[in-house]
Each structure stands twice: as C-alpha cells, then as structure tokens.
Simulated assay, not measured.
Amino acid sequence: MQLRTLLFASIAILLTAIIYSMSGSAQQALLLESKQGKFVVGSRPIPKPGPGEILVKLRATALNPVDWKIQKYGIFITEFPAVLGTDGAGEVEQVGEGVTNFSKGDRVFFQGTFDNDRATFQQYTIAAAATASKIPSNLSFEAASTIPVAFTAAYVGLYNHQPYGLELAWPLESADRVIQLARLSGFSPIITTASSKHADYLKSLGATNVLDRSLSLESLQAEIKKLTNTPVDIVFDAISSKETQQTGHDLLVPGGHLVTVLPLAITKSEKIGHVGVQGILRLPQNQELLRALYSNFTQLLEEKAIIPNRFVVLSDGLHGIIGGLQRLENNQVSGVKLVARPRGA
C-alpha cells in the first residue's frame, strides 16, 4: 500500500509537469512527494497574487532545520505533493489589487509560509505586501534571504505582548536576531554560549561575552559570576533541547524568564516565567507586530543596525536543496545559513 501511494504521487507529479509545460504557465519547484516521502524537482503552476499580495520571482531561498524535520517526521504538512521553504528573496513580478508600496522589478525579501503558493523552494511564490521589505542596494538576494525566519523568532520572543513574548520596548527611533536585538534594546551584559570558533563573529554582532557551549552548568554559573554581579533574568534558548532548557532554567533567578523556540520539555519552577516562541508569520498574535517590523526593515539594514547571517550558496539550484537538508540533519552546518538559488546559478 505504501509503494502504491508513492507510485500514485509520482504519477501525479509527472502529469502536473506535462499539463503546465503545455500551458506555458509552469515553474520548477522542489516537491515533497508524500508524507515522509522523497524530494523531487518537478513542475507546478505559477500562482497569481490576490489583494494585498505580490508575486515574487525568487532569486534566493535559505534552508532551515524545520524543512528536513517535516520530511523525516511527517509533521505540519497534510496535503501532497508539498512545497517547503520559508526564507525568500527575489524580484517583484506582479502586484495584486491594492498594493501601492511595491512595483514590478523591486528587490524584496520576506518570510513564506507552508502553503504551496507561498513557500520558497520554487521559482515563483506569493508574499503578503505588508510583511515584505525592499532589499537595500548594499545587500545581495542571498544575504537578504537569510534574515526572515531566524529574525522573526527572535523578534517575536522579545517584543510580542505576553504570553507570546517578553513585551520589551523596541527602540525603533534608534533606527541575529537575538544578540543584535538585545544590543539595540540596551541589554548588558549579553552573554551567549556557542562554539569557541564563532566567538569573534558573535562579539561583532553585540555579544559582550561568549562562553563555550560544552561547559557544564556548574562551570557556566562560575564563569557568569566572574563576568557580572547582575542576576540572569532572561535566557533565550535558541536550541531548546531538553538539556539546554534545563540549563537555562537553572541559570535564572526567581522572577526570570526562559524563552524557548520549541515546546517546554522540562518541569519548570513556579517562580520562573516561560515564553514559547512561535515565529509563524500568519499567527494572529504576530501579524501586527511583524507588519511594524517590515515597515522599518529596509532602514534598519541600510543603517547596519541589523546584519544578515553569514551564508554558503548551494550549487545546482533546487536540486542542491536536497543535499543541503541532509547536511543540516547530519549536523554538518555551523555558524552559517545554507542558501539555494531556485533559478540556478
């Protein structure tokens, strides 16, 4: 039965490719054939933007760990074949009704969603005009594509209203993400754990101290005491395994807050607050916050208040994403984002 299902899925992809190549409205896309199935490059229709939307000709898309987890564990997606990918940058090809802030040819970046017409592992996609921004002239498509998903998680966790975030004040008048945002919001010290080889880079973004992530809880506590007498009242856990959550929890003083990007996996003290970040564009509680962010994003990038991630470009266009996701799953990527060019080199 499983073989038959996979066979039918492959036939459906083939027929779709034939139909749309005949109609002249086809595009290439990386398709997940079925639940926990294979990735294949095939054809699907080019969508049309609705009111308040733009059609983007994608030039770059960044990969995220959730993409391989959807394939491996069969989570989130229920309709197949499916297009994944949620970090995108490209050129506006068409604007929908009511869109006045973009024109054909504008260079833009945006966060996609897990919807076949709005995901980014393809050559064209739809984006909401309210949550897209123009790319400054000093940034490439590839650099811009590394920003949306990681930045959204950090931004929502720090600035959304409770219980969805810490509800900190965002200093927009001053013109990674967590370290850069913490710096802009006046935090000091900003202590992060990471591989020691990334220490200089993280300090360039605003970290005051970088501690080796392999240190035990006791060693971390001792090192932090050497650096500051200020109690640790916020831990932002960007990994959020059970082990890192427990370490973060145990570093906090009563009244502190633990922010995690995955569901809570530990027994939390009643004296510690918890914020579970859901950096999903379409969640109602995120929409107003993210519209405000995107209206200011271009200026923040021009002023270098926000700096994109470092990245490595994958070869072979959409085909290269398959190997890139395997590298992410095998924990072979450190300190960079992997970026693909859906239209090839």
Rank of each mutant, 00 (worst) to 15 (best):
T100G: 10
F80W: 04
G90K: 03
N138A: 14
G88C: 14
R59A: 05
G50A: 14
Y124A: 04
V149Y: 03
P47S: 11
G52P: 02
P47Q: 14
Q94I: 15
T120G: 02
Y124D: 05
D106M: 04
A144Y: 04
A130M: 13
G88P: 07
P51Y: 09
P49I: 07
Q111F: 06
G96D: 10
F121L: 12
G105I: 07
T125H: 03
P51E: 15
G52A: 02
P51S: 15
V66L: 13
I70L: 05
K104N: 10
Y124K: 07
K72Y: 09
D87M: 10
K104L: 08
S137P: 04
T125C: 15
F141Y: 15
A144L: 07
Q71D: 06
R107E: 04
S133F: 01
S133L: 04
D106F: 05
I77M: 13
Q94E: 15
T120E: 01
L63D: 08
A128H: 14
T146M: 00
V92L: 10
A132P: 01
W68E: 08
G88H: 10
F109I: 02
V56P: 00
S140F: 03
Y73W: 11
T131A: 01
G105D: 08
I126K: 02
G105C: 07
A130G: 12
P148H: 03
F109L: 12
D115G: 03
V95A: 09
E93Y: 11
L55H: 04
N64Y: 06
D87L: 10
I70G: 00
A130T: 14
V56F: 01
Y73T: 03
G50M: 13
Y73D: 15
K69F: 12
E91K: 12
G96T: 13
N116S: 08
V149R: 00
G85M: 04
T146K: 07
D87A: 11
T61H: 06
I126A: 01
F114K: 06
K48T: 15
K72I: 00
I70D: 00
A150R: 07
K134Y: 08
V41M: 09
R118N: 04
N116C: 02
S137T: 13
L63F: 01
T78A: 13
V95Q: 10
F110I: 02
F80E: 10
E97C: 06
K69H: 06
E79I: 11
L58P: 00
F76L: 15
D67R: 09
Y73R: 14
V83A: 03
I75F: 13
A89S: 15
T146A: 05
P65A: 08
S140D: 09
A62L: 11
S137Y: 11
A62T: 13
Q122S: 08
G90P: 03
K72E: 13
K69D: 06
E79Q: 15
Q122I: 03
F109K: 00
A130V: 08
G96Y: 12
K72A: 12
T146E: 08
T100R: 14
L84Y: 03
